[in-house]
């Protein structure tokens, strides 16, 4: 960018300003084109969401008959039907089930991943290199390779159709992606802090809880939010482990609409879809900086 360069000498100064004058017009035109392009892309991107919101408020006959995006009349009863839930289980029950699983996963991941990350980032122990390499490799491990035996194990333990198979693994740092994320963050913290803590008489546990953990907060928040959203969206694990309707989550309840192809259920189905997306949208609006930065850093420092 020519305008931002600092001229180092008289000749450089004239060169730069001449160049600036010459390119100013195309640059301005280019900028307008960029904004128009971005805006157009944004509209296409947002269309499915707008469609979802509109359809959730459309009366049944309008869903197919009318091609307008906006509903002719607002059908709020779609939402009251959706609140009644599916299979005699109310949406509030489904919502609290989803929240329980996602909340448990968040606590588990933040706790177990930060513990493991501290050991990998700061402590010395035998086989650290190979174990770290193994941990990284498990990021790429397809979930399906371990799925069936895990199911058999949880089946043997009598935990199928409970929330344990969905929450317990998170307390065992099985999501290596987050271990890696926190390791990367901890490596950036100055070592002098722990040296000072050690001189003040802190062992590894106290210096972890009192010095390192508070400073790792941004990475922990990123971990918490991503865990929440991914667990909230998860379908496959819930599909195989849960089968009593009263234990269903919002995602599993929505699944019962997959088989039903009748368009009369469209309004309530999409009303429930909106309810299911609402927590993610709220999280996104509240924490977008953490989410975007967390995603950006995952690729760069690796």
């Amino acid at each position: 960018m020519t305008t931002s360069t600092t001229p180092t000498g008289p000749s450089a100064a004239t060169d730069t300003s001449a160049a600036t004058a010459a390119v100013r017009k195309p640059v301005a035109r280019r900028r307008v084109a960029l904004h128009l392009g971005a805006l157009a892309a944004l509209l296409v991107m947002l269309y499915p969401l707008a469609w979802l919101l509109a359809t959730s408020l459309k009366p049944a006959d309008e869903v197919i008959a009318s091609l307008d995006l906006l509903p002719g009349s607002l059908e709020w009863s779609n939402y009251s039907t959706a609140l009644d839930g599916v299979n005699d289980v109310s949406v509030w029950r489904l919502l609290s089930n989803s929240l329980l699983i996602a909340g448990g996963a968040v606590v588990g991941n933040v706790l177990s991943c930060s513990l493991a990350a501290y050991a990998f980032a700061r402590l010395r122990f035998r086989f650290r290199g190979p174990l770290f390499a193994f941990m990284i490799a498990t990021i790429m491990l397809p979930h399906h390779a371990v799925l069936i035996p895990q199911y058999i194990i949880f089946n043997q333990l009598g935990m199928v159709n409970t929330y344990w198979p969905l929450i317990l693994p998170k307390f065992l740092a099985t999501e290596a992606f987050f271990v890696f994320l926190i390791v990367q963050f901890m490596r950036g913290l100055p070592r002098e802090l722990e040296e000072a803590a050690r001189i003040d008489g802190c062992g590894p546990f106290r210096s972890f809880f009192l010095v390192i953990l508070p400073l790792t907060r941004p990475a922990l928040i990123t971990t918490a939010i991503f865990t929440f959203i991914w667990t909230w969206n998860d379908f496959f694990t819930q599909l195989i482990y849960l089968f009593s309707p009263e234990k269903f989550t919002l995602t599993l309840a929505l699944r019962s609409f997959v088989d039903a192809s009748s368009t009369s259920a469209f309004g309530p189905m999409f009303a429930m879809s909106v309810i299911a997306l609402l927590p993610i949208v709220l999280f996104f609006l509240a924490f977008q900086r953490f989410l975007v930065e967390g995603m950006a850093n995952s690729g760069i420092k690796g």
């Binding site: 995602t251 997959v258 879809s273 299911a276 993610i280 996104f284």
Partner: peptide, 14 residues
């Protein structure tokens, strides 16, 4: 963030 959800998959089908 939204795309992996069942809600959006249902929107896509429609």
């Amino acid at each position: 963030l939204l795309g992996a959800s069942m809600s959006i998959a249902l929107v896509w089908r429609a």
